[in-house]
Amino acid sequence: MSLLQWAAVGAAGYAIYRAVQGKKAETSHVAFADGEPADKNFAQVRSAGVEGMRSDPKQWDKTDQASDESFPASDPPATY
């Protein structure tokens, strides 16, 4: 196979991949958990806590929870 044929096969494969993944990528946001309504959320702020995250952190304690609940406030939580 020539280099041009390999390039055409690669481009076709990439186009198929994007077509399959494109719909999911357009509707999901990075910070929001699956099923979290982000489209109607004007401020684009997710729910506080691990439940609102797409990926679960390995360690999560009361301080992390309080800090996440206070975001985007300028003051740190009182649990420090």
Rank of each mutant, 00 (worst) to 15 (best):
Q59H: 10
H29P: 00
K62M: 09
P37V: 02
A8E: 03
L3M: 10
K24L: 07
A38P: 00
K24R: 15
S74H: 06
R18C: 11
P72M: 04
P37G: 02
H29Y: 09
A8T: 10
Y14H: 07
A48N: 07
R18T: 13
Q65F: 07
P77K: 06
F32I: 06
D39N: 05
A66W: 02
A25N: 12
Q44H: 04
S55W: 10
P37Q: 04
D68S: 11
A31K: 05
A12C: 11
R46M: 03
R18G: 01
M1Q: 07
A19L: 14
W6P: 00
P57A: 09
W6M: 13
R46A: 04
S47P: 00
Y80L: 12
T79A: 11
P77G: 10
G22D: 06
M53G: 05
A7W: 00
D75V: 15
Q44T: 00
A33F: 01
D34W: 02
G52F: 02
M53T: 04
D64T: 08
S70T: 11
G10V: 08
G10M: 11
D56T: 15
K62T: 12
V45L: 07
P72A: 06
K62D: 14
G22N: 08
Q65N: 13
G52N: 06
D61N: 15
A33L: 01
V30C: 04
V20C: 14
G13E: 01
